[in-house]
């Protein structure tokens, strides 16, 4: 009889652990599809383009992020390939001069200031160091948004426990500080929180 009673705390522990490690992340994140599919691989492999060809810096050195429709239209004014996504892009966005409402995996909170120029141009850090194999993927991953904060899951990283992550995963302050510490860079509060 007492042996069965031992199972109650064990079952409780199992339920608690399952709730924390499995159920919670499943509930915390909401999956959203990108408005269009986009193949980085076609552009980087077949097209032979570099990241900076589209994700460039403007005249005053500011990183412009995702290219505008007008930039894309310099090549895609008309449909070049055969994919349905490209056709939709040209019809719905290029010809109507609308911006694609991309969901940005790496968008930082408003109170964090991240200058690409200091890291890429001056620091010489490769894009893959923070964005991983994003530039070689054939499709866009589903965008997972944190229901509480409203930010992308990529900020925290794929693992809810932040264990076993790839070096490029995670864009939390801890990740920034760790890299700055490893490379012996300055890490004052006002560097990132203006």
């Amino acid at each position: 009889m007492n042996r069965f009673r031992v199972l109650f705390p064990l079952a409780g522990l199992l339920v608690g652990l399952t709730a924390g490690w499995v159920l919670f992340p499943a509930l915390l994140y909401r999956t959203e599809e990108q408005p269009l599919q986009f193949s980085h691989a076609v552009h980087t492999d077949t097209g032979g383009m570099a990241c900076a060809d589209c994700h460039s810096f403007d005249a005053d050195g500011r990183f412009v992020g995702i290219p505008t429709t007008a930039q894309c239209a310099s090549c895609h004014a008309d449909v070049m390939g055969e994919t349905e996504n490209e056709k939709r892009f040209v019809e719905e966005y290029v010809k109507t001069n609308r911006e694609v409402p991309w969901k940005v995996y790496a968008r930082q909170p408003d109170n964090a200031y991240f200058p690409h120029a200091a890291h890429v141009t001056r620091g010489g850090i490769a894009c893959e160091r923070c964005h991983g194999p994003h530039g070689t993927m054939n499709t866009l991953r589903p965008y997972q948004v944190n229901r509480i904060t409203g930010y992308s899951r990529d900020i925290w990283g794929s693992s809810i426990g932040r264990v076993g992550m790839e070096p490029w995963e995670g864009m939390k302050m801890d990740d920034c500080v760790r890299c700055h510490r490893e490379t012996e860079r300055a890490r004052a509060c006002l560097d990132c929180h203006k």
Binding site: R5, F8, P9, L10, A11, G12, L13, L14, V15, G16, L17, T18, A19, G20, W21, F24, P25, L28, W156, I160, G161, R162
Partner: peptide, 18 residues
């Protein structure tokens, strides 16, 4: 016992900290 153990399980998960 069940509830206490479940609470302990949650504490040893990322839930409260996240």
């Amino acid at each position: 016992r069940f509830a206490g153990a479940a609470t302990a399980g949650i504490v040893f998960s990322p839930l409260p900290w996240k």
